[in-house]
């Protein structure tokens, strides 16, 4: 019965340094939280570097990283673990959360609001002073080692009433707020990630800024850093910058034909 360690996933370390360009004091804050064993909540619009930041911190702190993309069918068993039948035997297999706890890893639950409410509750005892994971099916209480850290993310821009994070959950976390970086820093990121020169990167960032001015005026969100990187990558692959921007930015932001026209006007203004 206790052969779980052979079947359970072994969280892996990140060997190569992920590219991450700090934008404020998020690195020392995260480190301090990790040292004081506090869980962290990352808030911010889509594509602003949250996932990348966690990867970078895991590398920096030399911890394995376990990432779970939450979705509405994610059950407690999916997180904590379940029995499997192997031959004539039943074998317990840790879920990613349990594996992360045992390994003293950083466990990153991405887009926590997507998970079902009853699922979120299992992280409560892990996220407060108890730092325990309760595996009910095995009657086991796993204390989290000092190195273990829980990180969750959520995008407050989400508008659905059915997707709010409960106060009892959010008040367990230290919150780091992310936003798109200043123009010059964002250009550095776009140049590095997209493989283009600074001149083109600056133009793409300028375009990003113009689209963000339209937020709430017909666009739900302006272009994220991710979209700017995509446009840069297309351009680096030989597509003309204007066409790359229309495909990766304008069309990705909206289906509304009028809005696409306006975004096209802005693309032409920049290039």
């Amino acid at each position: 019965m206790d052969r779980y360690d052979s079947l359970s996933p072994q969280p892996a370390r990140i060997d190569a340094e992920p590219y991450y360009h700090p934008v404020a004091d998020e690195v020392p804050l995260f480190e301090a939280a990790w040292r004081r064993r506090l869980p962290v909540l990352l808030k911010g619009p889509t594509g602003c570097g949250k996932t990348r930041f966690v990867e970078y911190m895991a590398w920096r702190l030399q911890r394995p990283l376990v990432t779970v993309a939450c979705h509405d069918d994610l059950t407690t068993s999916d997180l904590v673990g379940r029995y499997l039948i192997v031959g004539n035997d039943t074998v317990w297999v840790d879920g990613p959360l349990a594996a992360a706890v045992r390994a003293g890893a950083i466990c990153y639950l991405d887009e926590i609001v997507e998970a079902r409410k009853d699922t979120t509750v299992v992280i409560h005892p892990l996220a407060d002073a108890r730092r325990m994971l309760s595996i009910e099916k095995r009657g086991e209480l796993v204390p989290a080692p000092a190195d273990f850290m829980l990180v969750i993310s959520y995008n407050p821009g989400y508008q659905s009433v059915l997707k709010e994070i409960k106060p009892s959950t959010r008040q367990r976390f230290v919150a780091l707020e992310f936003d798109y970086p200043d123009a010059e820093e964002e250009a550095v990121i776009v140049a590095a990630e997209g493989g283009v020169d600074m001149e083109l990167a600056r133009k793409l960032v300028k375009l990003g800024g113009l689209t963000r001015n339209l937020k709430g005026q017909g666009l739900d969100e302006g272009a994220s850093t991710r979209l700017l990187v995509h446009a840069a990558q297309l351009a680096a692959a030989g597509i003309a910058a204007e066409a790359a921007s229309v495909a990766a930015i304008a069309r990705a932001l909206t289906d509304d034909p009028d809005m696409t026209d306006t975004l096209g006007d802005l693309v032409r203004a920049v290039f």
């Binding site: 800024g209 113009l210 689209t211 963000r212 001015n213 339209l214 005026q217 017909g218 009028d258 809005m259 026209d261 306006t262 006007d265 802005l266 203004a269």
Partner: peptide, 13 residues
């Protein structure tokens, strides 16, 4: 008006 208004909004923020 509409398209130009949005364009100027985009430019000026």
């Amino acid at each position: 008006e509409v398209r130009l208004g949005r364009f100027v909004q985009g430019l000026s923020g």
